[in-house]
Computed example of a mutant assay.
Amino acid sequence: MNSEQNPDSHRCGSVAVIGRPNVGKSTLVNALVGAKVSIVSNRPQTTRHRLLGIATVEGGQLLLVDTPGLHRGQGRFKASAMSRVMNRTARSAVEDVDAALMVVEAGRWDEEDTLVFNVLRAGGIPVVLAVNKVDRLKDKSALLPFLAQVSEGRDFAAIHLVSALKRKGLEQLLRDLLKLVPEAPPVYEEDEITDRSQRFLAGELVREQLMRQLGDELPYATTVEIERFAEDGELLRIGAVVWVEREGQKPIVIGKGGVRLREIGSKARQQMERLFGRKVFLETWVRVREGWSDDEAALKAFGYE
């Protein structure tokens, strides 16, 4: 019996959110959840971890698995250990889920989008296509031929035109995703938005500022480790280490007179206070671990799956 036949039924299930880098997967997950659970920047491969966003809506609960962008390992994303880990994380997301939400950019479909679709087709699960960033497409008349192109020979359960940034087209998308998950009670409480700890989210918020404020290449040579996370009454005391790969990268992160690192810390702290709903005292340091992004042991130590 489906939810239309039984309006009192409750649906709950998992949906992998997958796509090539920089199509807006994390922005879409945040919009569907209604809160910030995934960090975002305008740089590809901001998302490095598998992260669960919990969207509790009328009649159901969707467990949205945000993933790193699936890529071919070229250019900046050469076949390093980090690249391999992110691809494994993205590919494994289609295992043990009820459906997938494939995200593409309006007006663009390339070889990496085809790679994503082939991974999903091999997974044998229903796929909903979200054509994101429609607000940025200047020539709206190009949408119909684009949709005809991408759907030819591909069996999507539904296709939706959305703008994650402007939160447009999301209600019907949520309804169609709910139809693809089983009747089941909710797994999480109504006010829960992710399965990740505040400690993990704190590290991600620092890394978000690194992605936003550093140059094109350096953010990919940085990661963040939370060394201290302690409650002091109503205050959270957090100590974050920014790891870089070479000694020469430290002064770039720190900036002249420490200005850049203070700015990174200040903006990350503001985001933490907004997310955690309490005052935060944040300290940051920069340290070097040579070649960490191409070292499987280092990646494991830093919490990469």
Score class of each variant (00 low, 15 high):
residue 244 V to G: 13
residue 245 E to H: 11
residue 245 E to D: 11
residue 246 R to E: 15
residue 246 R to Q: 15
residue 247 E to Q: 15
residue 247 E to T: 14
residue 247 E to M: 08
residue 248 G to D: 11
residue 248 G to W: 04
residue 248 G to I: 03
residue 249 Q to L: 00
residue 249 Q to K: 02
residue 249 Q to P: 05
residue 250 K to G: 10
residue 250 K to H: 02
residue 251 P to F: 09
residue 251 P to D: 12
residue 252 I to D: 12
residue 252 I to W: 12
residue 252 I to K: 12
residue 252 I to M: 12
residue 253 V to I: 15
residue 254 I to T: 06
residue 255 G to C: 10
residue 255 G to N: 05
residue 255 G to E: 08
residue 256 K to C: 04
residue 256 K to G: 10
residue 256 K to D: 10
residue 257 G to M: 06
residue 258 G to P: 06
residue 259 V to P: 04
residue 259 V to R: 15
residue 259 V to N: 15
residue 260 R to E: 09
residue 262 R to I: 03
residue 263 E to H: 13
residue 265 G to S: 07
residue 265 G to W: 05
residue 265 G to N: 10
residue 265 G to Q: 11
residue 266 S to F: 07
residue 266 S to V: 01
residue 266 S to M: 11
residue 267 K to E: 13
residue 267 K to F: 05
residue 268 A to E: 12
residue 268 A to D: 09
residue 269 R to V: 02
residue 270 Q to H: 07
residue 271 Q to P: 00
residue 271 Q to N: 12
residue 271 Q to G: 04
residue 272 M to T: 03
residue 273 E to S: 10
residue 273 E to G: 02
residue 273 E to M: 13
residue 273 E to Y: 05
residue 274 R to L: 12
residue 274 R to N: 08
residue 275 L to Q: 11
residue 276 F to E: 04
residue 276 F to C: 01
residue 277 G to L: 06
residue 279 K to T: 14
residue 280 V to N: 05
residue 281 F to Y: 11
residue 282 L to K: 04
residue 282 L to C: 03
residue 282 L to M: 03
residue 282 L to N: 08
residue 283 E to D: 11
residue 284 T to M: 12
residue 284 T to E: 06
residue 285 W to G: 01
residue 285 W to M: 04
residue 285 W to N: 01
residue 286 V to D: 09
residue 286 V to T: 08
residue 288 V to M: 03
residue 288 V to H: 08
residue 289 R to V: 00
residue 290 E to R: 13
residue 292 W to N: 08
residue 292 W to E: 09
residue 295 D to M: 06
residue 295 D to Q: 06
residue 297 A to R: 08
residue 297 A to W: 01
residue 297 A to E: 05
residue 297 A to C: 00
